[in-house]
Structures are given as structure tokens and as C-alpha cells.
Simulated scan of single mutants.
Amino acid sequence: MLPTVTDAEAAKGVGFGLAAYLMWGCFPLFFALFEGVPAHEILIHRVLWSCLFLAGVVTLLRRWRPVREALARPRRLGRVLACALLIAANWGLYIYAVETRQVLQASLGYFLTPLVNVGLGLLVLRERLGRLQGLAVALAAGAIAMQLVLLGEPPWISLALAMSFGTYGLLRKQVPLDGLSGLFVETLLLLPMGLAALAWLEQAGLSHFLAESRTTALLVTSGVITALPLLAFAGAARRLRLATLGFLLYLNPSLQFLIALLVFHEPLDAVRLATFALIWASLGLYSWASWRRPVSPARA
């Protein structure tokens, strides 16, 4: 029996989803290549070259119409600017985590992100959770509290990554732009700040751009690798159910976790291992509970 068009499209969607999450999961290997280049300078170039590359993609795909419509309504760009600042903070902190070999914390942050999304939906959107879903969120909060008590400090990189990306997702849902157009407008709004920061680095003699061909190539490539997984994710999102995308989501932090242990040889003590175990348990419980009973929207 020949597969139906729906089956073929779903299979293609899984391929796109796997490609997107594999690329995101391998990001630590790329950003670890920047030796001696501070995180803030990498972030500046990531914004600049992402904007340039996305402009080419938007032109190639003839997707300028939603971009022009968004820019024609400057009063509505406030939320887009907030998204841009949040994603820039998330990118910069992630690069810092890789440079300082704290990829385990970055991995934990992205494991926490779905649960932060749930918490924000509960607090901001007044969504209602089932008993098991609420227990899963409480279990994750308990894991963070345990690390705070036993180690004396919270995993601040993990929390900041999860909160920035979770809040970005919340605001992004309220912006009527698709993934490609939205990211392009966000980087376009950050472009003046990026150019000003780059000019300051050049004037102060602190810029690493053009210092070595290898570093220059890496800085330019940072913009390309930012856009590629987004394009793959967009292809997956059009073809797959949200539940399938949610399942694939865990591939990204799982790869980061393995890279932190096997490539960067980051230490994993008993307390941090217990934190991960509790987070994994809470994600498993939440996923199973959501499959049995979806989150209910707030009543008007």
C-alpha cells in the first residue's frame, strides 16, 4: 500500500524537526570554537550576520510582504522589540555558558523551558492544569529549590535561559508574524544597536573581526547557523502535530547534556545529577499527563 500524502508530509516534517533540534543541540560545539572572543562580541556579530542572511532568505522566498506590514505599524513594534531584546539576552547568555564551560546549566535551562512555559501560561494566560500536570511543575520547582539549599546558590544560568526563552515564547505568540519574518524583524530592530556596538569595539581596538581569517569566518557563520535550524523548524511546524514537536524538543537539551559530559568533561556531582533526574521525571510526568488531558484554556 502506497503512503498517503499526509504520511509523506509527516515523515518530511519529522526529518525537518530532527534537523532543527540536532543543529540546536550541537550549538555548543560551534560556539566552543571561538577562542579569545568574548561572548558579547560574538552576540553582536550573530545579530548582524543573522539579519543580513535572513534578508537574503526573505528575498529568495519572496516573503517581504509581512515584513513591510509589520514595519508600517511602528506602534505595534513594541512587543516585537521586547521579543528581540529577550532573544538577544538568551543568545548572549547561552554563548557565555559555552565559553565558560557551563553547558550542563544551559542544558538544564532548556529542559526547564517547557515547564516555565506552563507556569507562565498558568500565571499570565490563566490556563488551568490537571492534578498531574501541576505535580510535574511542583516537582521541577522542588528540584531547583533542592539545588539552592544543598549547593547554596541557584542555577542562575539555567533559570535565566529558561525564563528569557519562556517569556520570549509567550510574547512571540502575540505577534502576528511567522517564524522567519518574525526573527528577521527582531534582528532588524537590533541592527542599529549592533552596528553601534561594533563601531565602539573597532574604535576601542577591541574587535576581533578581520584579525584572523578563521575568526572572521566563524563570526560570519554564526549568523547563518542561527537561521538554518529556524527554517528547518518552520518546515516541521507546518507538517507535524504540536505533540510531536514537543516530543522532539527534548532532543536539543539531551544532546547538550551529552556534549557537556563527553566532550567538555564537565563535572556532574550528585546534587546536580539529582536535579536533572527530578527535572526529567517532571517532564515525563507532564508529557504523559498532557497526552491524557491537554491544558485547559481559561474561561472568559
Score class of each variant (00 low, 15 high):
G78M: 04
A243Y: 15
V57I: 06
P267C: 11
A136H: 04
L71M: 11
I95E: 05
I259D: 04
E266D: 02
L148W: 14
R73E: 10
L125V: 12
E153G: 14
L283G: 00
L77P: 07
R73Y: 05
W64C: 00
F257D: 06
P66E: 03
I225K: 00
P267R: 14
F233C: 03
I279W: 02
R126Y: 13
R299Q: 14
G179C: 05
R293P: 08
A88H: 11
P155C: 10
L115W: 02
L71F: 04
A234S: 14
A289C: 04
P114Q: 07
E212Y: 10
P154W: 14
H265W: 14
R76P: 09
N252V: 07
T275L: 12
L22N: 01
Y250C: 00
W64K: 01
R73V: 09
L150G: 12
P3A: 07
L170F: 01
T59F: 11
R239K: 09
F30Y: 09
G166Q: 01
A281G: 03
L240C: 04
L54E: 06
Q102A: 13
A298D: 14
G109T: 03
L195S: 07
Q174I: 10
T59Q: 13
P155T: 06
R68D: 09
G284S: 04
L120E: 00
L189G: 04
G130V: 08
A89V: 08
A197K: 03
R214P: 02
D7I: 05
A204E: 09
I144D: 09
V137G: 06
G205M: 11
R62D: 09
A160T: 14
L245Y: 08
A19N: 03
R73C: 02
V124F: 13
M23K: 02
L170P: 01
I225V: 11
E69Q: 13
W200S: 13
M1S: 14
P154M: 15
L188V: 02
G92F: 05
F247V: 12
V175W: 04
L129I: 08
L278S: 08
P192F: 07
Q105R: 11
F264I: 07
M146N: 15
T167S: 06
L120W: 01
L81W: 03
A39N: 10
L43W: 07
L177M: 05
G205R: 10
A11H: 08
